[in-house]
Design a protein around this nucleic acid. Structure first.
Lengths: 330, 330
DNA sequence: TCTAATTTGTGCGTATGTATG
DNA sequence: GCATACATACGCACAAATTAG
C-alpha cells in the first residue's frame, strides 16, 4: 500500500503521506481502518522511525488520521482537502463573536477548518480542552478572557502555533496576539469627550468582574480621578436607583436594556437627565433611542488581522483599535 | 450485554466498562445483580483474562461493582456519572443561538460536554462533519436549516441518538425533534392581528431563500391570499424604495436596520406611514423605535426542552411555540 | 499477579544537502 | 569562501498504554 521510492526531489516522508492519501482516495483505506504500525513500515521500507513518524504526525494535525497509544493509528477522516485545522477557544457564545468568527473564516480561505470551543470562564474546562486537543491542530487561537495564569496551561503547546485573542495577560507577552487595550480604550475615548462628560455629576461603571476585563475598570477609575469626577462602580443595574446627572458606562447589553427601561419609567430624558455610553457595538445600537454612543473595537478587522497573522506567520502582538462611535445617548 | 467491537481508538477494556455502565444506566443491570464471570466473558469474546479483569478492577475501584471470592462480581451502585458527549451541529453562528445554547447547557448539567459545529448551509461541510464525527458522540443534535435531503447523510448515525433541531423536513419525520412550525407561526400570528394589518395597503416579506425557512414564505403568501391583501416578496432591503402604506415582515436584522434607517431618511413615521414586524426576538428590540413587534419562538424553552428530551430519552417530535410580541412598530 | 510483546509518544544527538546572506 | 539556518533523515533510549499468556 505504501510506496517509497528512491526518488529525487520528493522527500520520503512526503511519499508516505501521498501513499496514504491515495489509499484513502481509492477506497483501499476507509474511515476506522487501522494503518500499519510505525515499526512495520520502518522495517519493510528500511526507513528511520522518525521519518514515518513525521508523515503520521502531519496527517494527524490535518485530522486525517488519529492515534491511540498502545494500539495504533486509525483513519479518522476521508476528506483530504482540508489542509489545515485551527483550534479556536472562546470564552462564551455571544452576539459580537459573530463578526469576528465570520471575518476570520472568510480571510482564511476554504481549505482551512476551524473548530470552536468555549471555556465559559472555567479554568478546569479550559485545561481539559487544551489537553484533549493538544497535538491535533496546526494552530491554537485562545481567548483567555479573565482567566489568570493560563500560561502554565498552554505552555506545552508549540509556541509558534499559539495566538492569543482579545486579552493578553502579563504571563502571555511572549505569544503572538491580537488584543484590545481596554484600559487605554476607555481612558482615551472618555478623555476625547471630557467636556461633554463634565456636564454630568457622576460617572457610573456597571462592571461584572467575572466577565469584564480588569483594564476597563482601571482605565475608568484613572480617568475619573485624573479629572476629579465623582464616580462609582456597581456590579449590576438591577437594584440601581437612577438619579439625574448620572452618566452610565455599560459593557453588558442586559444592563443597558435595564437602565434604558429605568430611565423611561422615571420619565427621565436620555442625554439630558442621564447619559449612556455602551461597550461593544451591535447592529441595533445605531437606532436604539436615537442611537447609543458606543466604545467598540472593530471585530471584523480583528478577525481579518488574525487570519492574516496566521497565514503570514507574523509573530507579533497587535493592538486592535477601539473607537468611540458618537451617537445621541449622552 | 457486553459488546466488544473492532472499534477505532477505543481499547477493549474500555469497551467492556462502557458496556456495563450502559447496562446499568438502561436498567438491564440493577443493584445486587451478578455480572457474568470473567472466564465466560473472556471465552465469549475471545479476550485475554487480564483485559476483562482490568475493566472489572476499574469498576471496582470506582465502587460500581464489588467482588466476592469464590462467587463472582455484583453490582454495588447504580450511581454512575458518565461524562457524555453531545455533537451539536448548527447552521451558522448568530445572536439568538446564544439563548438556545446556554439554556441547553444549563439543563444538561455539568457532566455533559457539548461540542459545537457549523455547516454554513453547505452540504459538503455538513457531510464531512457528520462523517468525521460519527461514532464519537453519545448524541447528535442536528439543525439542518434549509439543507434538503439530509436524511441520507445522517442515516448511518444510530437513530436513537439523533435529534433534529428547528426545522424538520419531510425525510426527517422519523427522528425525535424540536422544531418551529414557521408556516403556522407566520400565518396564525398575522391572522391574530389582521384587523390592524388591514390598515396597510401592501405586505412585503424580505426573504433570503438561502437562509430563511421555506415555511415562512408559504405561510406569508397563504395569509395574504386568503385575506386578499396585496403582497410582495423581495430578497433584500438594499434597493427597496419605501412607500407609505407598506407593512414589512423582516426575518433578518440587517434588513431591519436598513428599513428603519430608510424610514427615517424619508421622514416617514413608523406604525403610521409604514409598519414593521420582525422575526426572532433579541434583547434590544424591546426598545428600538419604541419597541419592534416581533414573531419569535422561545429559544430558552427550546434549549431546555431539548435537554430534557435527551436526558429522558423522549423520542417524540415537539413543536416549539411561536408567539407574537406586540410592541409599537405597526 | 507477573512477565513479555507491541505500539505510540517524546527527547536527544548526529549527519547531510540546500538556500541565504 | 564562510557562517548560519532550515529541512530531511537516521539512530537510540525510555515512558506509557494496550494486550496476551
Amino acid at each position: 500500500m505504501i510506496v517509497v521510492k528512491r526518488k529525487i526531489g520528493v522527500p520520503k516522508y512526503k511519499q508516505i503521506i501521498q501513499s496514504i492519501e491515495q489509499a484513502i482516495l481509492s477506497g483501499v483505506l476507509q474511515k476506522g481502518d487501522q494503518l500499519p504500525s510505525i515499526n512495520s513500515i520502518k522495517n519493510k521500507h528500511k526507513l528511520s522511525r522518525d521519518t514515518v513518524l513525521m508523515a503520521f504526525n502531519y496527517l494527524k494535525t490535518r485530522g486525517i488520521i488519529q492515534s491511540v497509544v498502545g494500539k495504533g493509528y486509525y483513519v479518522a477522516s476521508e476528506n483530504i482537502t482540508v489542509t489545515q485545522k485551527i483550534f479556536l477557544l472562546f470564552d462564551e457564545l455571544n452576539a459580537f463573536k459573530e463578526d469576528l468568527y465570520n471575518a476570520f473564516l472568510k480571510h482564511l480561505g476554504n481549505h482551512i477548518q476551524v473548530d470552536i470551543f468555549f471555556h465559559h470562564f472555567n479554568k478546569k474546562i479550559f485545561r481539559k480542552l487544551i489537553n484533549d486537543n493538544s497535538g491535533d491542530y496546526h494552530f491554537y487561537v485562545i481567548m483567555p478572557a479573565n482567566l489568570k495564569n493560563t500560561h502554565k496551561l498552554i505552555k506545552n503547546l508549540p509556541k509558534d502555533k499559539v495566538y492569543i485573542l482579545d486579552q493578553v495577560h502579563a504571563d502571555l507577552l511572549d505569544y503572538p496576539a491580537i488584543y484590545q487595550n481596554f484600559e487605554k480604550a476607555i481612558f482615551n475615548n472618555l478623555n476625547d469627550v471630557k467636556t461633554q462628560i463634565k456636564k454630568y455629576k457622576k460617572l457610573i461603571l456597571i462592571f461584572d468582574k467575572e466577565k469584564q476585563p480588569q483594564g476597563m475598570h482601571k482605565g475608568f477609575v484613572e480617568f475619573c480621578k485624573k479629572n476629579a469626577i465623582p464616580f462609582e462602580v456597581i456590579n449590576s443595574a438591577i437594584s440601581k436607583e437612577i438619579e439625574v446627572g448620572e452618566l452610565f458606562i455599560i459593557p453588558d447589553d442586559k444592563n443597558l436594556l435595564q437602565i434604558i427601561k429605568n430611565i423611561k419609567t422615571h420619565n427621565l430624558v436620555l442625554a439630558k437627565d442621564v447619559g449612556i455610553i455602551s461597550y461593544n457595538d451591535a447592529l441595533l445600537k445605531e437606532i436604539v433611542e436615537g442611537g447609543i454612543t458606543t466604545i467598540s473595537t472593530d471585530f471584523n478587522l480583528m478577525g481579518k488581522r488574525l487570519a492574516e497573522m496566521i497565514l503570514n506567520k507574523e509573530a507579533i502582538q497587535v493592538e486592535n483599535p477601539n473607537k468611540l462611535i458618537i451617537r445621541n445617548s449622552f
